[in-house]
Design a protein around this nucleic acid. Sequence first.
DNA 1: TACAGATTAGGACAAATGTCCTAATCTGTA
DNA 2: TACAGATTAGGACATTTGTCCTAATCTGTA
Lengths: 188, 188
Amino acid sequence: MEKTTRTQIIESADELFYHRGFEHTSFAHIADEVKISRGNFYHHFKSKDEILESVIELRLERAKQMLDAWQTQETNPTDRIRLFIQMLIMNKSKLKLYGCPVGTLCSELAKLDHVSKKQAGKLMGTYRDWLARQFIGAGCKKNADELAMHVLAHSQGIAVLANTFQDEAFIKHEVRQMEKWLDEALGK
Amino acid sequence: MEKTTRTQIIESADELFYHRGFEHTSFAHIADEVKISRGNFYHHFKSKDEILESVIELRLERAKQMLDAWQTQETNPTDRIRLFIQMLIMNKSKLKLYGCPVGTLCSELAKLDHVSKKQAGKLMGTYRDWLARQFIGAGCKKNADELAMHVLAHSQGIAVLANTFQDEAFIKHEVRQMEKWLDEALGK
DNA sequence: TACAGATTAGGACAAATGTCCTAATCTGTA
DNA sequence: TACAGATTAGGACATTTGTCCTAATCTGTA
């Protein structure tokens, strides 16, 4: 079964929005990628904003899918948090070039005061809630959300600086620090 | 002595680029703010990119000026780092609305692959270098830059999340954590 | 085969953008 | 006052943008 045009549009837009930003990506860019006529978008979407909506949905699904996979793959909540942190290492070359796909989208939509900025926030919220659940599972019931937010904040900061300074080595060092912090936070 | 038109353009652009982002800000927006004709920008600047250049210069100057003021105002390097961290509290309402002016600019310019992205990186670098000098002054000569990058990363992450979740209270909590971390890092 | 509905191509459209040009006005100096 | 240079207003310009329309083509079904 082939990919539908609609799916191709969403997936190309997903990548272009990440690489170039939402506003800086035009229909012409997506059309070039998918190799369809520009005027024909409107058979699949009512507007550019609606494409963004679908892209965020796609990212939400993929995120949940990945986190679900981790849930069955690792039995230990602590190790699952470690998997989350390891994501920074796995994606280090992309982070260097484009930053974090979630964080940069949220930042851009906040400045545009875009209708979908809240929806993009849910994407970040998915990771937040999942991390909090892992911390609860690891025995930190009372401050699980705060710990989750700390991991999230640290990850976002690492992404911004790796992008700004075009530095992958920094990611590795900072991840080591975060892992050390995690051991201490869960130790007591 | 009145502000020159050129200065007014730069200062309005500075604010608009922060609030709306660089690309999403047009000449029409700046012209509205400064109350001049649109066509008359080109007597002061050759292009929009040149306005951005001047805005970054302005931000560089202001950053250096602020850090210099701290240098004379506080004799203790540790207290100067605390002042840096306290900036997050002072600017919390703006951070919630627009994120960090430095971080969001660097992220945007990276996606645009803009000629000035390196220059914007220098802005971040100014804080990095200053923080590193403070850590050296506080007796952490061997890993001063790593500590500086850690403070910077944490600050950036806090800004991204405060913006994403529209949450000021989170800033206060995370700043407290960072101050605690600072005490420990300098204690040994 | 015939035909209805889905899909597509291609282009029209107004609005907005960055850029540039020219004529008017202001300002300081001789 | 007279005049040169700086500053400004206003609009022209080509390009790009998101949006929309229409005619052609494809696809599955009767």
